[in-house]
Amino acid sequence: MSAILAEKDLIPQSTPDAPLLPTWLSELRDEVSAHPGVNHLLLSRLRTGRYTKGDYKVFGLQHYPMVGTFTRYMELLLLRAPSSEQKLWLAKVLVDEYGEGSDGDDHAKLYLRYLNSMGLVSGEEETTPLCSAVWEFIGIHLRICSEEPFLVGLGALGPGHEWAIPKMFNQIIPGLERAGMGYEERMYFDLHTEQDIEHANWMSQALAQLGQDEEARALVRRGALLSLGARFRFWTGVERCVVARRQPHSVDAVRRGILGSRRPDREESPGNRRDLRTAIQDHWAGKSWPVPLPSDSTLIEVSQ
């Protein structure tokens, strides 16, 4: 079997271990698999190009703040779960996400291990300016999990995350290997191509039971597409940071939209990880998100 097929298969199929997916979920699975957010050109570039540890550090510093926030989305969604059975489903994944599945190392620690191997200077992970797409991504998910119907949140965290991540990370790993990173250093990524398949299968069972009518299915799909639309914007933001590291002059050129790009960048960085943590705490306390978020239609149009 080719590596490409192996990547495709990371999106859960109906296997003896996994329940037979109903048609609508099977279609949604294919839609997630083909979504631009899961197949961003940056991911293929990482797979085929020659990026260095320095480039992967830039990538990692933008990605790192998102690593610790998935549990916050889950916590928010748990509060909105309509029944104790659904709460139990979410709690199971949440426990894994807290770190049970990786020998007690939680995800943030694993990710720091990765960043350290890239030559992280202590404190850099707190002070590096984050691109607006990182802020957008987190803000969108906090909003989805706290304001949208439960099934939209489930769509964002299930198909939008658990189904998408193994395929995305499987494209990143060969590039990390080529840049000289061993399994120990890139364990965060490898674990997510293994562990999340279980999560995804398990989430599929929950979705199959909850998606009994068209309305419910549409909510799940909407959540997935919102999340993947934000994911797409995130990869674009990361790619621009990687380019800007080597060629800082490009930032201004892109912002002015004079290089053939049809969509110039907009803002300066809204802040670093410390600022982001404060914003998340404030959000928890009921304050509004400090960065304007793209509209739902903008996010959904990414795949249309």
């Binding site: 490409i4 990547e7 495709k8 293929s44 085929t48 190009g49």
Partner: peptide
């Protein structure tokens, strides 16, 4: 490498 990335992306989406 960019050309390879295009073809990788095509296989990734279309199988």
């Amino acid at each position: 490498y960019q050309a390879q990335a295009v073809l990788h992306c095509a296989k990734s989406i279309l199988g």
